[in-house]
Every structure is written in structure tokens, then in C-alpha cells.
Amino acid sequence: MKEEVQQLINHLIQIEHVSTTLYLAMSAYMDRKNYTGMAKWLRLQSEEEREHMLMLIRYLSGKDGVVEISEMSNQPTDFGTPLETFQKVLEHEQFVTNAYRKAYDYVKQVDPQTVVIVEDFLREQIDEEAQSLTIVERLKLAGNSPSALLLIDQELGQRQNGTAVI
């Protein structure tokens, strides 16, 4: 594996590592605020991002590449209102999509096997962004209505591992 591709995969591993801890921190925050459904949704999202990280690690290891897990700074402990929290989720997913888009543009010129992996992740980002956007839009509609927020919380709490609710 070319050194540049190895560095790129390690960069994507780090992004997924940050994603899993960010969503776990958000989950703990929402749990503390008694939005247990949103907390569950975010915890499952964290688990999904962790699985993405592990897939990239397995891919790189399988190519005899060197996996580098970098240190991270602490995650915040306060994310604001549910709307503000999920706006951060959407922004983060857009950041992740952009990282995979750049990775795809590079590897399609130098490594056809890695293109397949990156393309799968890029395709999945379509759903990640769409779900986040839908949640943000629903939270905007709910405004400050406690009953509407609790309904959204209940709906998000119905998520099962690997399946979207909204």
C-alpha cells in the first residue's frame, strides 16, 4: 500500500474515532437532560461510527498497513438544546462526508481497491446526512413545545442498531 493511501486511511480512522466519542458524549448529555430517546439514538450512532472505525482498521491491517490511533482532546459536556445538539450532528456528518469525498477523489487515481471501501462509506453518508437533517427539521418544527420534543424523543428512542427511525 502506498504511504499516502495509508496516511489517508489513518486520517479516516481518526475521523471515525472522533465521531464515536463525540456521539457518545452527546448521548450522555441528552441522557442527563432526560431525553432518553435522543440519548439512545446518539449511543447507537456512536456504535455505528465505532464499527466504521474498526472496518477501516481491519482494511488497513489486511493490506499490511500500519494503523495509527491518535490521541484526542476531550469532548464537550454541554451541547445546548436538542436542536443545537442535532445541528452539531448534522455539521459533523457534513464534515465527514467532505473528508470521504476528498479521499475518494484522491484514491480513485491511485488505488482501485481502496476506492471500493471509500465509495461504500461515501454512499452511507447520504443516509447519515439525510437522517440528521430530518431530525434537525423536526426539532425546528417542535420549537420549545415540551410535548412535541417528547414525541420526537420517543420516536428517536425506537431506533434499533443499524436501522434509522426518522
Rank of each mutant, 00 (worst) to 15 (best):
M1C: 01
K2P: 00
K2M: 05
E4R: 15
V5A: 01
Q6I: 07
Q6K: 15
Q6E: 10
Q7Y: 07
Q7A: 08
L8V: 00
L8A: 04
I9G: 05
I9E: 06
N10W: 10
H11G: 05
H11A: 07
L12Q: 09
Q14G: 02
E16G: 05
H17M: 12
H17D: 04
V18L: 14
V18R: 10
S19H: 04
S19P: 00
Y23D: 01
A25L: 09
M26R: 07
A28F: 13
Y29G: 01
M30D: 02
R32Q: 04
N34L: 04
G37H: 05
A39V: 01
K40D: 00
K40Q: 08
W41E: 01
L42N: 03
L42W: 01
R43K: 14
L44Q: 12
S46E: 02
S46V: 04
E48P: 07
E48T: 08
E49M: 09
E49H: 12
R50P: 00
L54V: 10
R58W: 08
Y59T: 00
K63E: 01
G65E: 07
V67Y: 00
E68Q: 12
E68S: 05
I69Y: 06
S70T: 00
S70H: 09
M72C: 05
S73W: 08
N74M: 14
N74S: 14
N74T: 11
D78P: 07
F79K: 09
F79E: 02
P82G: 01
E84W: 11
T85G: 02
T85E: 04
H92S: 03
H92T: 05
H92F: 14
T97R: 12
T97Y: 13
N98Q: 14
N98T: 09
N98W: 12
A99R: 12
K102G: 00
Y104S: 02
D105V: 10
K108C: 10
K108D: 06
Q109I: 08
V110T: 14
D111W: 08
P112S: 13
P112T: 12
V115S: 10
V115A: 07
V115Q: 14
V116G: 05
I117P: 02
I117W: 09
V118N: 05
D120M: 15
E124S: 11
Q125N: 06
Q125I: 02
I126W: 13
D127W: 13
E128V: 04
E128M: 08
E129P: 03
A130Q: 14
L133W: 11
L133V: 03
L133R: 15
T134L: 12
V136K: 03
L139Q: 04
L139P: 02
K140E: 05
L141I: 08
A142L: 11
G143L: 14
G143W: 13
G143N: 12
N144D: 06
S145T: 07
P146N: 08
P146M: 12
P146V: 08
S147W: 06
S147V: 05
A148T: 06
A148Y: 06
L149T: 08
L151D: 01
L151G: 02
L151R: 13
I152K: 04
E155Q: 14
L156C: 05
G157P: 11
Q158D: 06
Q158G: 08
N161G: 07
G162E: 11
G162Q: 15
G162P: 11
T163M: 15
A164R: 15
A164H: 15
A164N: 09
V165F: 07
V165E: 00
